[in-house]
Write a protein that binds this DNA or RNA. Sequence first.
DNA 1: TGTATATAATGCGATATCGTACTATATAGT
DNA 2: ACTATATAGTACGATATCGCATTATATACA
Lengths: 150, 150
Amino acid sequence: MDSDARAAYFALFNEIGIISQLSRAKMEASLPDGLVLPHFSVINHLIRVKDGRTPLELATAFQVPKTTMSHTLAGLEKHGLIEMRPNLKDGRSKRAWLTEAGQRFRDGAIAAMGPDFGFLAEAFPPDRVAEILPHLRALREVMDRERDPD
Amino acid sequence: MDSDARAAYFALFNEIGIISQLSRAKMEASLPDGLVLPHFSVINHLIRVKDGRTPLELATAFQVPKTTMSHTLAGLEKHGLIEMRPNLKDGRSKRAWLTEAGQRFRDGAIAAMGPDFGFLAEAFPPDRVAEILPHLRALREVMDRERDPD
DNA sequence: TGTATATAATGCGATATCGTACTATATAGT
DNA sequence: ACTATATAGTACGATATCGCATTATATACA
């Protein structure tokens, strides 16, 4: 790989890293105290995909170490947003179920975040998102496969 | 903002967040123990831009709280990669200077990371990077301005 | 020049993130 | 069935990240 190519990847990941930070900070600003973005993301995932996921499935979906997901789930349970129950199919495992409070939390969070993204509507409109999103998905998938070639 | 638009932004930031995690993990894999990506990024910035930056300039450049940057700089100094000296122009301030070890560290890290990105050359080639990078830069700038409208 | 306000950096405490090691259960091969 | 290996989850410790409050210096302006 020549040094131009290397510089391009560095620049790409640099921008992505900073956008990630900024978007995270923005979203966390409208979450209740004690909850951070991964809490919201997991709840959102449990609704979008389906609850009853195992910790390991969630860790894989979010590409974080399983011990990190353990910690996040413990926080969600402490706040009464999910309930962990044993996995009947596998005695080693558990499953995460949304509580009613968890569902309400998600709706409230989305409503609260809406205005925070309003400024994007003009400066970076949805059609521009549509233009780059497929590339980002592709990049993510490439990196996923590299990390875990199953 | 309608719910389609909201979903588009969520999806965008979701992909960006995961790519950020994956790229960070990948790069950190080739850093010496005790050093994480922000350490490398700061050193790299000090070389690309110029050393003698103040902690606040660096915090702004990376969009992290200044207390985080303080911590990162302390780590770099502990490892002998930078040296903090008083800022002659402002008694409240300091400046970060690269040491020789810092310069060597950067070169070594870049060399070590090269192979880790090799897999991208085919699956996500530089011309594809070039295609999306301007959009990401624009998005970053929009978000920067929103955060701090100076 | 004196006083009020702004700014640069850090101290401290809370929590997040992650690696390593461990426990419990499942699965495979004999 | 028995043993070896693999897998799901957690305990624990180290460090990162961040918010809030504090200290020191600079700047504004009466």
